[in-house]
């Protein structure tokens, strides 16, 4: 019954993403934590270990693509009106950074992202716990959660704009609807999948229900949540930017929408560059946090010494 909730989850998320691929990253939210923690860790540090050949080719590819873009627009094969030019984009970004006009927008977007992440994660954690521990509630709410998760989020944006206005809170609400489900499903799974022996052992040591949550269920759920943190952060940023794009007076999404409105392709690309760099930096931060909080896990390659 309530197992159906857990089992159907990746499918329902994918459905949601298929209907709404504009807003929702297609990655399914759930990654089981235990089987293979090495993958992400090594991925995080992969660039340290790549061979000089691979590194050289990677650099060549990046430089080649940008140079090709520059060349094609220079000789007129690509129209700069539609495609702008790497040099112009670089100049625009540089202007934004040196004059400081972009910082306000950046701050607003990051603020929205942060709030969406914290509120969405807190709600997801709470509801996930509740449903995992109270089977009846999970069984009753199961179809409604699937329905809600199937709603393409972008159609909610107008509603949130009406409810919360043009300020940051409509974007936060938007991001929350994205982050919530990722964290909720992972928490639900994390609590349900706790090894029976760990629970029994802790109970035999005298733990009450609240101590059980604190010492066993919460840490177990947290490992699941942290392994989905990359997805959650991505969702939060998507929520903020798309929300801004659809209606706001500040933020990177707003800057991009403004540029688009004046056929300023250079501005659109410059906005995309700034956003990408920010996402990369946040990603690095998440990697560090994850490595620190999940340091109790087996190292890559070594899972269990029998």
């Amino acid at each position: 019954m309530s197992d159906a909730l857990a089992r159907s989850k990746p499918a329902s998320t994918k459905d949601g993403a298929a209907v709404d691929d504009r807003v929702t990253p297609t990655e399914p939210p759930v990654r089981p934590p235990a089987p293979d923690p090495s993958v992400k860790k090594s991925a995080g540090r992969a660039w340290l270990r790549v061979s000089p050949l691979v590194l050289g080719l990677q650099l060549a590819l990046g430089v080649g693509a940008i140079a090709g873009w520059q060349l094609l627009t220079q000789v007129g094969v690509l129209d700069t009106f539609f495609f702008s030019q790497p040099s112009r984009v670089a100049v625009r970004v540089w202007e934004w950074l040196t004059t400081g006009v972009i910082y306000d927008d950046l701050a607003v977007t990051l603020q929205e992202t942060f709030l969406a992440l914290v509120i969405g994660a807190a709600l997801g954690l709470f509801v996930g716990f509740l449903l995992a521990r109270v089977r009846l509630l999970a069984a009753v709410l199961d179809p409604y959660i699937k329905i809600l998760n199937a709603v393409p989020r972008v159609v909610l944006a107008p509603v949130f704009l009406l409810w919360f206005g043009l300020g940051i809170w409509s974007k936060v609400a938007f991001g929350v609807t994205l982050v919530f489900f990722v964290v909720f499903f992972n928490t639900y799974q994390g609590v349900r999948e706790v090894s029976r022996v760990l629970v029994d052992n802790t109970r035999m040591l005298g733990a009450s229900e609240s101590q059980l949550i604190r010492h066993v269920f919460l840490p177990s759920a947290l490992t699941w949540i942290f392994s989905s943190l990359h997805v959650s952060v991505g969702f939060a940023i998507v929520g903020a930017v798309v929300g801004e794009y659809l209606g706001s007076a500040k933020g990177i999404g707003y800057v991009i929408a403004q540029a688009e409105g004046t056929f300023d392709t250079t501005g659109v690309f410059a906005g995309i560059v700034v956003l990408s760099v920010v996402v990369l930096l946040v990603e690095l931060l998440v990697n560090r946090v994850e490595r620190r909080l999940l340091r109790w896990r087996p190292d890559s390659g070594r899972t269990d010494v029998a």
Binding site: S195, V197, L198, D200, N201, T202, M204, L205, G206, H215, V216, P219, S220, T223, W296, R297
Partner: peptide, 16 residues
Amino acid sequence: RRASYMFQQDALLPWR
């Protein structure tokens, strides 16, 4: 409450 139980499987909390 007067008993401790040592399980066949590992029952240590991996995160502690």
